[in-house]
Design a protein around this nucleic acid. Structure first.
Length: 234
DNA sequence: GCGACAG
DNA sequence: ATCTTGTCGC
């Protein structure tokens, strides 16, 4: 039984921290031996300034062609503000609502945030992978913790992210001359496999195609709900 | 105590 | 993350 169901996401920041320290013990930082990725997905949310409703979405792509196969979206009232280190408690309720609508779950899920490159080694991708029971990767646009050394300018260049003496992730250059993305394992995943997949799904742009598709979906959902649909006008 | 701080 | 116009570069 998931601890989340016991608390129903109604947690204080203090309880959330305690929950992270407990759930972290369940992480498996190694991909299943039989892992075969044919469907790969991205998840993201979008909000308004007032921070009342969160629009979340998951987009599933064919792992080879990177073409969309299925997508699902949801709108949920956010319970927590953004608190560094507790992002999963803000985003997962709405992402879970979208995830449950998928007819066919993906083999791998990439989150827009950290995996174990986190103060308590339990970032969004760890929590989400564990909650959904799916191999997951964290791919963030900036660092939450840790530092890294020299990174070559060419696509494919990498540099280990270290935090408290441990390698927790990798800075990965997905496009020449552009700032890197920060990759770390979520659940049922290891760092080399995570880096390999992020590069594979980011053939042209800085961010993974999965993340880009999810980002576009949730922004469209938010605008459709906020902006009066002003289409037909005789 | 002071600064840092995914989205 | 969101709010926003123009602007620099391939």
């Amino acid at each position: 039984m998931e601890l989340e169901s016991l608390h129903g996401w109604e947690v204080t920041p203090q309880e959330a921290v305690a929950l992270q320290n407990t759930l972290r013990e369940r992480l498996v930082l190694r991909p299943p031996a039989e892992l075969r990725v044919s469907r790969i997905a991205g998840a993201d949310i979008s909000t308004e300034r007032g921070n009342i409703t969160g629009y979340g979405g998951v987009v599933v792509l064919d792992a080879m062609s990177l073409l969309p196969l299925e997508q699902a979206g949801a709108a949920v009232t956010l319970r927590l503000p953004y608190i560094p280190g507790l992002l999963s408690f803000r985003e997962l309720p709405v992402l879970a609502a979208a995830w449950e609508q998928l007819a066919q779950k993906p083999d791998l899920l990439i989150f827009d945030g950290q995996g174990i490159a986190h103060p308590r080694r339990f970032g969004l991708a760890c929590h989400g992978g564990l909650l959904f029971g799916v191999p997951s990767i964290g791919c963030a646009k900036s660092l939450l913790v840790g530092t890294y050394g020299h990174l070559g300018p060419e696509r494919g260049a990498t540099a280990e992210i270290r935090h408290r003496g441990e390698v927790v992730g990798m800075a990965v250059r997905t496009r020449r001359g552009v700032s890197p993305v920060y990759v770390s394992p979520g659940h049922l995943m290891d760092l080399p496999t995570a880096v390999e997949w992020v590069l594979r799904v980011s053939p042209r742009y800085r961010e993974p195609e999965t993340t880009r598709r999810a980002h576009r979906l949730v922004n469209a959902l938010r605008r459709a709900a906020h902006e009066p649909s002003r289409r037909e006008a005789p």
